[in-house]
Amino acid sequence: MIPIPLEFIRSMARQPVRNYIAPGLSSYIIGAPHEGGCVRLFESEREQQFAITPHSHRFDFHCLVLQGRVTNRLWRKSTAGDDFVETKLIFDSLGKYKRGATEAVRRVSHDTVYSAGQGYAMKAEEVHSIYFGRDTSVLFFEGPNVLNTSVILEPWVDEKAIETFRVEPWMFQKETA
C-alpha cells in the first residue's frame, strides 16, 4: 500500500465542523458529498474525556486510522449484559434528531483499539461508542443510507431510563471561512 500523506488529505478538506460530538473533535468533508455517501476526515486534537452515547448509523462505513488511535466499543445483544433502553432516532439535520420507538434490551460491550495503518468497518445496524486519542486522524468512508433511522442506547436503572444522549450548544459548530 502506498501511504497518502496526511497533509495531502488535509489540503482537500472543507466544510469544517468543530466539536463534532466531543470537545476538540473536528469533521471535514473530503471531495464532493453525494447521495451515495461521502468521505470525511475526523481529527481529534485532544484525548476524549467522556463517553459518547452508544449509537448506530443509517449507513455502513469503513474507517482508516491515519494517525493516533481510536477505541471502538461494540455493543452486542446478550442475556448476560446490562439493561438499556434502545431508542430509534429520526435524523432531521446535523445535530437535530427526533426520538421514536423504544425497546428494552440487554447489551454487553467489547473494546478494540486501532492505531495508525489499521482499519475497521461497521454495518448500519451495529451499535458502538468511539473514543479518540489526542492527535488522531481517521479517514471515514460513509456509504449510502441503508436505514431510515439509527438507534441509541441509554441505561435502564431503578426502573427508569437515564437519558445520556444530548446535543449541547457547543457541539456541531460550523466554521465560516
Rank of each mutant, 00 (worst) to 15 (best):
Pro54Ile: 08
Ser56Cys: 06
Phe59Tyr: 15
Phe59Lys: 02
Asp60Arg: 00
Phe61Glu: 02
Phe61Val: 00
Val65Phe: 00
Leu66Tyr: 04
Asn72Lys: 07
Asn72Val: 10
Leu74Val: 11
Trp75Ala: 01
Lys77Glu: 15
Ser78Cys: 05
Ala80Met: 14
Val85Tyr: 04
Glu86Trp: 05
Lys88Pro: 10
Leu89Gln: 09
Ile90Val: 09
Glu103Cys: 13
Ala104Trp: 13
Val105His: 07
Val105Thr: 12
Val105Pro: 01
Arg106Cys: 07
Arg106Tyr: 13
Arg107Val: 09
Arg107Gln: 09
Ser109Cys: 14
Ser109Met: 09
His110Asn: 13
Asp111Trp: 03
Tyr114Pro: 09
Ala116Ile: 03
Gln118Tyr: 03
Gly119Asn: 06
Ala121Ile: 05
Ala124Leu: 03
Glu125Ala: 11
Val127Gln: 00
Val127Asp: 00
Tyr131Trp: 15
Asp135Phe: 05
Thr136Phe: 00
Ser137Asn: 11
Val138Gln: 02
Leu139Gly: 02
Phe140Asp: 12
Phe140Trp: 08
Val146Lys: 08
Asn148Ser: 15
Asn148Lys: 14
Thr149Phe: 10
Ser150Thr: 01
Ser150Leu: 07
Ile152Lys: 00
Leu153Ala: 07
Glu154Ser: 05
Pro155Ser: 10
Pro155Val: 09
Trp156Arg: 13
Glu159Cys: 11
